[in-house]
């Protein structure tokens, strides 16, 4: 009797929870492809792109929200808000921007914004329900920035999927990401070409809701 009641209560709760939009944060080091992925998802389900993508690091310097995305997979509907974060870094040197042809002044302004962006992204850890950790599969996964991001999510109990991005590139090695973080679900994709993106939607449905 009591267990019956508990069951139906849980069912109700589940429906209630499903109605709620999840705040899905995109975290990762700079240039991993967070905004490219956010754009792809937005294009797939809302028909428009939202953020600017660039080979220059710290392109995203403010948290950008894409609201009311409804994703449908074989397992049903999934409502979410995407929060595309500035990339996390432990250093910002304005001179590195000058290599991309920026003026001294623009480079300094970008560096200042970039440092604020990193702080903003860290503050947002308290406001996300679930996270995609976007990593570049062509890079060494065992960096302190990656370890710190994942450690913070673990410590806060925020569910996550690790996205091994850029698998379209010949030097991509998504397996090294999987072996660096064996305790987590890793989904290899290419945000640029859309390869395997369906798998990612299914994984979000399965692990983050």
């Amino acid at each position: 009797m009591l267990s019956e009641l508990k069951k139906s209560l849980q069912k109700l709760l589940k429906i209630f929870n499903r109605k709620k939009q999840i705040q899905l944060g995109f975290y990762g080091p700079v240039n991993a492809g967070k905004t490219t992925l956010a754009n792809r998802i937005s294009l797939d389900w809302l028909g428009k792109e939202v953020g600017t993508v660039s080979e220059v690091p710290h392109e995203t310097r403010h948290v950008q929200k894409i609201e009311n995305i409804v994703v449908t997979t074989n397992n049903g509907e999934l409502k979410m808000n995407i929060v595309d974060m500035p990339g996390i870094a432990t250093q910002v040197d304005y001179k590195s921007f000058k290599a991309f042809g920026m003026s001294e002044e623009d480079a300094k302004a970008r560096a200042r914004e970039a440092t604020k962006g990193v702080i903003e992204a860290i503050k947002w850890l308290d406001n996300v329900d679930a996270v995609l950790v976007v990593l570049d599969s062509t890079q060494d996964p065992y960096t302190q920035v990656n370890v710190t991001i994942i450690g913070n999510l673990e410590a806060r109990g925020i569910p996550m999927i690790i996205v091994a991005n850029k698998i379209d590139l010949p030097e991509a090695n998504p397996d090294s990401i999987a072996s660096a973080f064996p305790q987590h679900v890793v989904v290899p994709i290419s945000a640029a070409t859309g390869e395997n993106i369906e798998k990612l939607y299914e994984a979000i449905q399965e692990h983050l809701t």
């Binding site: 990193v118 913070n152 410590a155």
Partner: peptide, 12 residues
């Protein structure tokens, strides 16, 4: 990990 995040914030 939280201290690391604080360290990054303070660095920024």
């Amino acid at each position: 990990p939280q201290e690391e995040a604080e360290l990054i914030e303070a660095t920024m």
